[in-house]
Protein backbone atom coordinates (compact mmCIF):
# COMPACT_ATOMS: atom_id res chain seq x y z
CA UNK A 1 0.00 0.00 0.00
CA UNK A 2 2.67 2.51 1.00
CA UNK A 3 4.57 1.71 -2.17
CA UNK A 4 1.47 2.50 -4.26
CA UNK A 5 1.07 5.80 -2.44
CA UNK A 6 4.68 6.58 -3.24
CA UNK A 7 4.10 5.84 -6.89
CA UNK A 8 1.12 8.19 -6.84
CA UNK A 9 3.13 10.84 -5.04
CA UNK A 10 5.98 10.63 -7.52
CA UNK A 11 3.56 10.89 -10.45
CA UNK A 12 1.95 13.87 -8.77
CA UNK A 13 5.37 15.46 -8.21
CA UNK A 14 6.35 15.33 -11.87
CA UNK A 15 2.90 16.62 -12.74
CA UNK A 16 3.35 19.51 -10.33
CA UNK A 17 6.61 20.60 -11.95
CA UNK A 18 4.89 20.61 -15.33
CA UNK A 19 1.78 22.35 -14.02
CA UNK A 20 3.64 25.13 -12.17
CA UNK A 21 4.97 26.53 -15.42
CA UNK A 22 1.57 26.34 -17.08
CA UNK A 23 -0.09 27.91 -14.07
CA UNK A 24 2.33 30.82 -14.05
CA UNK A 25 2.11 31.58 -17.75
CA UNK A 26 -1.64 31.16 -17.89
CA UNK A 27 -2.11 33.22 -14.74
CA UNK A 28 0.17 36.09 -15.76
CA UNK A 29 -0.26 36.20 -19.51
CA UNK A 30 -3.49 34.35 -20.19
CA UNK A 31 -1.50 32.18 -22.56
CA UNK A 32 -1.96 28.45 -22.93
CA UNK A 33 1.40 27.20 -24.07
CA UNK A 34 0.83 24.03 -26.07
CA UNK A 35 4.59 23.62 -26.46
CA UNK A 36 5.02 23.24 -22.71
CA UNK A 37 5.00 19.45 -22.99
CA UNK A 38 7.86 19.71 -25.47
CA UNK A 39 9.93 21.31 -22.72
CA UNK A 40 9.45 18.09 -20.77
CA UNK A 41 10.53 16.14 -23.83
CA UNK A 42 13.58 18.35 -24.44
CA UNK A 43 14.50 17.99 -20.76
CA UNK A 44 14.32 14.20 -21.10
CA UNK A 45 16.47 14.29 -24.25
CA UNK A 46 18.95 16.51 -22.46
CA UNK A 47 19.32 13.69 -19.94
CA UNK A 48 19.77 11.18 -22.76
CA UNK A 49 22.31 13.26 -24.67
CA UNK A 50 24.37 14.50 -21.73
CA UNK A 51 24.62 10.95 -20.49
CA UNK A 52 25.57 9.61 -23.91
CA UNK A 53 28.10 12.26 -24.90
CA UNK A 54 29.30 13.78 -21.64
CA UNK A 55 28.81 10.92 -19.23
CA UNK A 56 26.52 13.04 -17.02
CA UNK A 57 24.28 11.38 -14.46
CA UNK A 58 20.66 12.38 -13.93
CA UNK A 59 21.52 14.91 -11.24
CA UNK A 60 24.07 16.73 -13.39
CA UNK A 61 21.58 16.68 -16.26
CA UNK A 62 18.98 18.62 -14.25
CA UNK A 63 20.63 22.07 -14.23
CA UNK A 64 21.63 21.61 -17.87
CA UNK A 65 18.05 20.72 -18.81
CA UNK A 66 16.75 23.68 -16.79
CA UNK A 67 19.03 26.05 -18.72
CA UNK A 68 18.32 24.54 -22.14
CA UNK A 69 14.54 24.59 -21.72
CA UNK A 70 14.50 27.98 -20.01
CA UNK A 71 16.39 29.46 -22.98
CA UNK A 72 14.12 27.68 -25.42
CA UNK A 73 11.10 28.99 -23.50
CA UNK A 74 12.54 32.49 -23.60
CA UNK A 75 12.97 32.22 -27.36
CA UNK A 76 9.38 31.00 -27.82
CA UNK A 77 8.11 33.87 -25.68
CA UNK A 78 10.08 36.49 -27.59
CA UNK A 79 9.43 35.12 -31.06
CA UNK A 80 5.84 33.92 -30.82
CA UNK A 81 3.89 34.37 -27.61
CA UNK A 82 4.74 38.03 -27.03
CA UNK A 83 3.15 38.98 -30.33
CA UNK A 84 -0.10 37.26 -29.44
CA UNK A 85 -0.92 38.46 -25.92
CA UNK A 86 -4.62 38.54 -25.25
CA UNK A 87 -5.43 36.35 -28.25
CA UNK A 88 -6.04 33.00 -26.61
CA UNK A 89 -6.97 31.01 -29.71
CA UNK A 90 -4.08 32.40 -31.72
CA UNK A 91 -1.58 31.50 -29.01
CA UNK A 92 -3.07 28.02 -28.76
CA UNK A 93 -2.58 27.46 -32.47
CA UNK A 94 0.81 29.12 -32.70
CA UNK A 95 2.30 27.28 -29.73
CA UNK A 96 0.82 24.04 -31.03
CA UNK A 97 2.74 24.69 -34.22
CA UNK A 98 5.88 25.32 -32.21
CA UNK A 99 5.29 22.00 -30.39
CA UNK A 100 5.14 20.11 -33.68
CA UNK A 101 8.23 21.93 -34.90
CA UNK A 102 10.20 20.92 -31.82
CA UNK A 103 9.03 17.31 -32.02
CA UNK A 104 10.04 17.07 -35.67
CA UNK A 105 13.38 18.68 -34.96
CA UNK A 106 14.14 15.88 -32.52
CA UNK A 107 12.69 13.19 -34.77
CA UNK A 108 14.78 14.41 -37.72
CA UNK A 109 17.89 15.02 -35.62
CA UNK A 110 17.62 18.76 -36.32
CA UNK A 111 17.54 18.16 -40.05
CA UNK A 112 20.62 15.95 -40.21
CA UNK A 113 18.34 13.03 -41.09
CA UNK A 114 17.84 14.66 -44.50
CA UNK A 115 21.53 14.09 -45.21
CA UNK A 116 21.36 10.49 -44.09
CA UNK A 117 23.19 11.26 -40.89
CA UNK A 118 21.87 9.53 -37.78
CA UNK A 119 22.68 10.92 -34.38
CA UNK A 120 22.73 8.52 -31.48
CA UNK A 121 20.24 9.66 -28.85
CA UNK A 122 18.00 11.54 -31.35
CA UNK A 123 15.68 10.36 -34.10
CA UNK A 124 12.22 8.80 -34.00
CA UNK A 125 13.13 5.81 -31.82
CA UNK A 126 12.91 5.16 -28.10
CA UNK A 127 15.71 6.22 -25.77
CA UNK A 128 16.57 5.15 -22.29
CA UNK A 129 18.52 6.65 -19.44
CA UNK A 130 19.98 4.29 -16.91
CA UNK A 131 19.76 5.19 -13.26
CA UNK A 132 22.93 5.35 -11.21
CA UNK A 133 23.37 2.44 -8.81
CA UNK A 134 22.38 4.36 -5.68
CA UNK A 135 19.07 5.57 -7.14
CA UNK A 136 18.13 2.19 -8.55
CA UNK A 137 17.17 0.00 -5.63
CA UNK A 138 14.45 -0.04 -3.01
CA UNK A 139 14.35 0.45 0.71
CA UNK A 140 11.81 -0.92 3.12
CA UNK A 141 9.42 1.25 5.06
CA UNK A 142 6.80 -0.19 7.38
CA UNK A 143 7.06 -3.53 5.64
CA UNK A 144 6.76 -2.17 2.06
CA UNK A 145 9.50 -1.97 -0.52
CA UNK A 146 9.79 1.66 -1.64
CA UNK A 147 11.64 2.67 -4.78
CA UNK A 148 14.59 4.93 -4.02
CA UNK A 149 14.12 6.71 -7.32
CA UNK A 150 10.42 7.46 -6.64
CA UNK A 151 11.42 9.01 -3.33
CA UNK A 152 14.15 10.99 -5.05
CA UNK A 153 11.60 12.41 -7.51
CA UNK A 154 9.38 13.49 -4.64
CA UNK A 155 12.28 15.18 -2.85
CA UNK A 156 13.42 17.08 -5.94
CA UNK A 157 9.88 18.24 -6.68
CA UNK A 158 9.21 19.35 -3.12
CA UNK A 159 12.47 21.29 -3.18
CA UNK A 160 11.61 22.95 -6.49
CA UNK A 161 8.05 23.73 -5.38
CA UNK A 162 9.50 25.34 -2.23
CA UNK A 163 11.96 27.29 -4.36
CA UNK A 164 9.09 28.47 -6.57
CA UNK A 165 7.10 29.51 -3.52
CA UNK A 166 10.08 31.49 -2.24
CA UNK A 167 10.52 33.09 -5.64
CA UNK A 168 6.85 34.09 -5.80
CA UNK A 169 6.38 35.29 -2.24
CA UNK A 170 9.82 36.38 -1.05
CA UNK A 171 11.41 38.18 -3.97
CA UNK A 172 10.79 41.39 -5.83
CA UNK A 173 10.46 39.40 -9.05
CA UNK A 174 7.70 37.29 -7.50
CA UNK A 175 5.84 40.29 -6.24
CA UNK A 176 5.92 41.88 -9.69
CA UNK A 177 4.71 38.63 -11.23
CA UNK A 178 1.86 38.29 -8.72
CA UNK A 179 0.87 41.89 -9.36
CA UNK A 180 0.72 41.17 -13.10
CA UNK A 181 -1.41 38.08 -12.43
CA UNK A 182 -3.90 40.16 -10.50
CA UNK A 183 -4.02 43.31 -12.57
CA UNK A 184 -1.63 43.72 -15.50
CA UNK A 185 -2.68 47.29 -16.33
CA UNK A 186 -2.26 48.50 -12.79
CA UNK A 187 1.03 46.62 -12.50
CA UNK A 188 2.34 48.47 -15.54
CA UNK A 189 1.01 51.77 -14.19
CA UNK A 190 3.04 51.08 -11.05
CA UNK A 191 6.23 50.93 -13.14
CA UNK A 192 6.46 47.15 -13.52
CA UNK A 193 8.05 46.13 -16.82
CA UNK A 194 5.40 43.53 -17.60
CA UNK A 195 7.00 42.31 -20.84
CA UNK A 196 10.29 41.58 -19.10
CA UNK A 197 8.73 39.89 -16.08
CA UNK A 198 6.46 37.80 -18.30
CA UNK A 199 9.40 36.64 -20.40
CA UNK A 200 11.38 35.64 -17.31
CA UNK A 201 8.38 33.83 -15.85
CA UNK A 202 7.88 31.98 -19.10
CA UNK A 203 11.52 30.92 -19.09
CA UNK A 204 11.36 29.80 -15.47
CA UNK A 205 8.23 27.71 -16.05
CA UNK A 206 9.82 26.12 -19.10
CA UNK A 207 12.93 25.32 -17.05
CA UNK A 208 10.83 23.53 -14.42
CA UNK A 209 9.22 21.44 -17.15
CA UNK A 210 12.70 20.59 -18.41
CA UNK A 211 13.67 19.29 -14.97
CA UNK A 212 10.45 17.27 -14.89
CA UNK A 213 11.58 15.74 -18.18
CA UNK A 214 14.89 14.65 -16.68
CA UNK A 215 13.02 13.02 -13.79
CA UNK A 216 10.67 11.25 -16.21
CA UNK A 217 13.60 9.97 -18.24
CA UNK A 218 14.60 7.98 -15.16
CA UNK A 219 11.46 5.86 -15.14
CA UNK A 220 9.97 6.06 -18.63
CA UNK A 221 11.20 5.63 -22.15
CA UNK A 222 12.06 8.84 -23.94
CA UNK A 223 10.58 9.54 -27.39
CA UNK A 224 9.63 12.61 -29.45
CA UNK A 225 5.88 12.62 -28.62
CA UNK A 226 6.24 12.04 -24.91
CA UNK A 227 5.37 15.65 -24.05
CA UNK A 228 1.95 15.72 -25.66
CA UNK A 229 -0.04 14.11 -22.81
CA UNK A 230 1.90 16.22 -20.32
CA UNK A 231 0.32 19.52 -21.43
CA UNK A 232 -3.11 17.98 -21.06
CA UNK A 233 -2.36 16.62 -17.60
CA UNK A 234 -0.69 19.86 -16.57
CA UNK A 235 -3.77 21.76 -17.64
CA UNK A 236 -6.07 19.44 -15.76
CA UNK A 237 -4.04 20.32 -12.66
CA UNK A 238 -4.22 24.05 -13.28
CA UNK A 239 -7.95 24.00 -14.01
CA UNK A 240 -8.77 21.82 -11.03
CA UNK A 241 -6.49 23.72 -8.64
CA UNK A 242 -7.70 27.17 -9.63
CA UNK A 243 -5.84 29.50 -11.96
CA UNK A 244 -3.15 31.49 -10.20
CA UNK A 245 -3.10 29.42 -7.03
CA UNK A 246 0.15 27.72 -6.11
CA UNK A 247 -1.51 25.77 -3.29
CA UNK A 248 -4.28 24.70 -5.66
CA UNK A 249 -1.73 23.35 -8.16
CA UNK A 250 0.12 21.45 -5.44
CA UNK A 251 -3.04 19.92 -4.03
CA UNK A 252 -4.59 18.98 -7.34
CA UNK A 253 -1.40 17.43 -8.72
CA UNK A 254 -1.14 15.37 -5.52
CA UNK A 255 -4.76 14.24 -5.89
CA UNK A 256 -4.48 13.46 -9.60
CA UNK A 257 -1.15 11.69 -9.08
CA UNK A 258 -2.67 9.50 -6.37
CA UNK A 259 -5.75 8.65 -8.41
CA UNK A 260 -3.49 7.76 -11.29
CA UNK A 261 -1.19 5.61 -9.19
CA UNK A 262 -3.94 3.85 -7.23
CA UNK A 263 -6.17 3.01 -10.19
CA UNK A 264 -3.22 1.96 -12.31
CA UNK A 265 -2.22 -0.42 -9.51
CA UNK A 266 -5.61 -2.15 -9.33
CA UNK A 267 -6.54 -2.00 -13.02
CA UNK A 268 -4.62 -0.27 -15.83
CA UNK A 269 -3.40 3.08 -17.15
CA UNK A 270 -6.35 3.63 -19.48
CA UNK A 271 -8.90 3.26 -16.70
CA UNK A 272 -6.68 5.49 -14.54
CA UNK A 273 -6.84 8.26 -17.15
CA UNK A 274 -10.58 7.90 -17.49
CA UNK A 275 -11.00 8.29 -13.74
CA UNK A 276 -8.69 11.29 -13.65
CA UNK A 277 -10.82 13.00 -16.30
CA UNK A 278 -14.00 12.11 -14.43
CA UNK A 279 -12.66 13.59 -11.19
CA UNK A 280 -11.55 16.79 -12.88
CA UNK A 281 -14.92 17.20 -14.57
CA UNK A 282 -16.69 16.60 -11.27
CA UNK A 283 -14.54 19.20 -9.51
CA UNK A 284 -15.12 21.75 -12.25
CA UNK A 285 -18.89 21.24 -12.07
CA UNK A 286 -18.75 21.56 -8.28
CA UNK A 287 -16.38 24.56 -8.31
CA UNK A 288 -16.12 26.11 -11.75
CA UNK A 289 -13.13 28.23 -10.74
CA UNK A 290 -11.18 25.32 -9.27
CA UNK A 291 -10.42 24.30 -5.72
CA UNK A 292 -8.63 27.51 -4.78
CA UNK A 293 -9.90 30.35 -6.85
CA UNK A 294 -8.67 33.87 -6.48
CA UNK A 295 -11.55 35.94 -5.24
CA UNK A 296 -11.64 38.96 -7.47
CA UNK A 297 -14.10 41.74 -6.94
Amino acid sequence: MIDTIFIGLSLGSVLLLVALGLAITYGAMGVINMAHGEMVMIGAYTAVLTSLYLGFGLIAAMPVAFLVTALLGLAIEKLVVRRLYGRLLDTLLATWGVAILIQQAVRLSFGLAFFGITVAGLGPGLQNVSLPEWLGGTFSLAGSQISVYRSFIILVSVALAALTWGLMYRTSFGMQLRAIMRNPQMAAACGIDTARINALAFAYGSGLAGVAGVLMAGFKTVFPDMGTPMVVDGFLVVVMGGVGSLIGSILSSAILGQINGLTAAVSNDIIARAIVFAVVIAVIIWRPKGLFSYKGR
Partner: peptide, 20 residues
Amino acid sequence: QIIPDFTIRENIVMGGFATT
Protein backbone atom coordinates in the same frame (compact mmCIF):
# COMPACT_ATOMS: atom_id res chain seq x y z
CA GLN B 1 -8.09 48.96 -8.30
CA ILE B 2 -6.19 47.95 -5.23
CA ILE B 3 -5.34 44.25 -5.13
CA PRO B 4 -7.66 42.61 -2.61
CA ASP B 5 -5.47 39.64 -1.69
CA PHE B 6 -2.27 41.69 -1.40
CA THR B 7 -1.61 43.05 2.07
CA ILE B 8 -1.84 46.78 2.57
CA ARG B 9 1.96 46.83 2.70
CA GLU B 10 2.25 44.92 -0.59
CA ASN B 11 -0.27 47.22 -2.25
CA ILE B 12 1.80 50.23 -1.25
CA VAL B 13 5.19 48.70 -2.07
CA MET B 14 3.84 47.78 -5.51
CA GLY B 15 3.78 51.47 -6.39
CA GLY B 16 7.50 51.73 -5.63
CA PHE B 17 8.53 49.79 -8.74
CA ALA B 18 8.14 53.07 -10.60
CA THR B 19 11.25 54.38 -8.82
CA THR B 20 13.45 51.72 -10.51
